[in-house]
Amino acid sequence: MEGNTFLFTVVSGLCFLPGGFPHHYILVEKEKTWTEAQSYCREKYTDLASLHNDQDLAQLIELTSSYHQVWIGLSLHNGNSWRWSLKMEGYYGEGEAEFRNWKSGEPNNIGGYENCVAMDNGGTWADDICNQTKPFVCYRGKKKNVVEM
Rank of each mutant, 00 (worst) to 15 (best):
L74Q: 09
L7I: 15
Y113D: 04
Q132P: 02
N4D: 13
G141P: 09
L60D: 06
Q55V: 13
K87G: 14
Q132R: 15
E62Q: 10
W34S: 00
F21P: 00
C138D: 12
K87N: 14
L76I: 08
A58W: 02
Q132A: 09
T33N: 05
T35C: 09
C41A: 06
L60M: 10
E62S: 13
E98S: 13
N53L: 09
C41H: 07
E89P: 15
V137H: 01
I72W: 07
E96S: 06
N4W: 08
C15W: 00
E31S: 14
Y113P: 02
G122S: 07
Y113F: 10
L7N: 14
S12D: 08
W71P: 00
V10I: 15
P107R: 05
T124W: 05
E2K: 12
Q38H: 09
E89Y: 12
R100S: 03
T35K: 15
S12W: 04
D120H: 02
N53K: 11
D127S: 05
C138Q: 09
A37E: 10
E29I: 05
G141C: 13
Q38F: 04
G3Q: 06
C116V: 11
H23L: 08
E148G: 04
I129D: 09
R140H: 15
G123W: 00
N145W: 05
I61R: 03
T124D: 02
L48A: 02
G3S: 06
E106G: 01
N101Q: 11
E2Q: 12
G90Y: 12
N80F: 06
G111V: 00
R42V: 05
W125T: 04
W82I: 09
Q59R: 13
E106M: 15
K144I: 08
Y40C: 11
K44E: 10
D127F: 03
A37L: 12
P22T: 06
Y40A: 10
V10S: 14
H52F: 09
E2I: 13
F8P: 00
W84S: 03
T46G: 06
K32F: 06
S50K: 02
A58H: 09
S65A: 10
W82C: 11
S85K: 13
P18G: 02
H77F: 12
K32E: 07
L14A: 08
T9H: 08
F99I: 07
P22E: 03
E106S: 14
H52L: 10
K143C: 12
H24E: 09
V11D: 06
